[in-house]
Design a protein around this nucleic acid. Structure first.
Length: 425
RNA sequence: GGAGGAGUCGCAUAGAGGCUGAGUGCAGCCGCCUGCUAAGCGGCUAACCCCGAUAGAAUCGGGGUUCGAGGGUUCGAAUCCCUCCUCCUCCGCCA
């Protein structure tokens, strides 16, 4: 959420930012309702002032045993008036809050302007695509043939866009989770957390999934609970409604969780394989930072995620998302895209974002910069470090051999009981 | 799931319709006093919103709101009533 005062005083900045994103909002209506609300609020507060004063007088009169009837009667009228004005203010509050919750974050000035992912800018590359003396296969063919991935039975159990892992496939998934958690906790200084993955509506509003993107979420029918689409939700909301100690910044958390997405807008896209699943595992990095340090923290968070790919020996590039591709809550996002030989393309495997104070304002997460200073909103950041299913896909495609087996990178072997190659069941 | 109890300023607690603009203690900060420390004395220790002053984020003045959340009763609610949430105790069920 943007600061309502900022929006009030910078309507054009907000309008421009919406335009850059290719989005719309009725800002004229916002201005009108906001104006109306403040006028009403001013009126009702004046009436409340009278009520407070007269109530005091009534108390005083009763104390000395004087008649109070006349004042009480006139106050009864005033009180009704206040009640009705209060209701009107509340109505406008709800309308304005609703509008504010639907306005996306303002992109950072360094974000390239563009319409969609084709306008994203690649800023760096690491490694080389592996060379094959045969036609590299897609990971679903490799995995199915090796008997470690079973999409048919997953479809029977749950439906399309679900996967069943067997044997070394399941172990590889688990090995990657542990490898990533160990790397981030032992070498990058993150604190491991294991949060609830069913969360309430307040948490979803806090990070920006609700109210606008409910179509992407799985909701429990009989409870006010949602399955998380990313650990960003539960980990960022750890500090909802808290005042944090700025001396401890940056706070760095890492969490492994399953994630659940309805993929409502992706019908027909990437229906095969592990790339786009309703349920997938992810190791997520989350930071709480001071505003003046948050972009440095974004850079180091991105590097922390990149380190996973480097150690796995996977060729990747880093792109800056353009305004049209930028997420609703983000000010700036770097995507890590891993090379997928079976597809012949790069695929997003991590998304690292700075939300500035957008989520902090929604979730009410603040800190006091100095002992006597005013409270400020923190900046929140997060990034995948990494998406596990997509990493499995990338490993299968990049390390596939002519005989259909797949080499396990050295760093994972200790996590696989020393297995150096998957040759099938 | 059932039955009780509780949620008040950083922590601990008082408060039971109007002398509460929420008191007290602790911790913390700033003074004073002091050879040093301790003690003592005085002060400060909440957030948000609206209006006004100023070129302004700062700051100042006025007003409003907030005692878990939301409604209600009343001229007036921390206090009474209703709904919900969270925590604790006991019972039942359960990995």
């Amino acid at each position: 959420m943007l600061d309502i005062k900022f929006v009030r005083e910078n309507l054009n900045v907000v309008r421009e930012s919406l335009e850059k994103r290719g989005m719309e909002a009725d800002l004229d209506r916002f201005a009108e309702l906001d104006e109306k609300r403040r006028k009403l609020l001013f009126d009702v507060e004046q009436l409340k002032h009278i009520r407070n004063t007269v109530s005091e007088e009534i108390a005083e009169l009763k104390r000395v045993g004087k008649d109070v009837q006349e004042k009480t009667l006139s106050m009864r009228v005033l009180s009704q008036k206040i009640k009705s004005l209060d209701a009107q203010v509340r109505e406008l509050d709800v309308a304005l809050k609703g509008m504010m919750l639907d306005i996306p974050n303002i992109p950072h000035p360094s974000v390239p302007i563009g319409a969609d992912e084709r306008d994203n800018e690649a800023i760096r590359c690491w490694g080389e695509p592996p060379k094959f003396d045969f036609e590299p296969k897609a990971h679903w063919d490799i995995g199915t043939k090796l008997g470690i991935l079973d999409f048919e039975r997953a479809g029977k159990i749950a439906g399309t866009r679900f996967a069943l892992y067997w044997g070394l496939g399941a172990q590889l998934e688990r090995a990657l989770i542990n490898f990533m958690l160990d790397l981030h906790t032992r070498e990058h200084g993150y604190l491991e957390v294991f949060p609830p993955i069913l969360v309430n509506e307040g948490s979803m509003i806090g990070t920006g999934q609700l109210p606008k993107f409910s179509i992407e979420l799985y909701k429990c029918q009989d409870d006010d609970l949602y399955l998380i689409p990313t650990a960003e939700v539960c980990v960022t909301n750890i500090h909802r409604d808290e005042i944090l100690d700025g001396r401890l910044f940056p706070l760095k958390y890492v969490a492994y969780t399953p994630c659940f997405r309805r993929e409502a807008g992706a019908a027909g896209r990437e229906t095969r394989g592990l790339i786009r699943q309703h349920q997938f595992n992810k190791v997520e990095l989350v930071k709480f930072a001071k505003p003046e340090e948050s972009y440095d923290e974004l850079d180091s968070l991105t590097k922390d995620a990149e380190e996973v790919l480097r150690r796995l020996g996977l060729h990747y590039r880093v792109v800056v998302l353009c305004t049209g591709d930028l997420g609703f809550s983000a000010s700036k996002t770097y995507d890590l895209e891993v090379w997928m030989p079976g597809h012949g393309t790069y695929k997003e495997i991590s998304s690292c974002s700075n939300f500035e104070d957008f989520q902090a304002r929604r979730a009410n997460i603040r800190y006091r910069p100095e002992p006597k200073a005013k409270l400020r909103y923190v900046h929140t950041l997060n990034g995948s470090g990494l998406a596990i299913g997509r990493t499995v896909a990338a490993l299968l495609e990049n390390y596939q051999q002519k005989d259909g087996s797949v080499i396990i990178p050295k760093v994972l072997r200790p996590y696989m009981g020393g297995v150096d190659r998957i040759k099938g069941r």
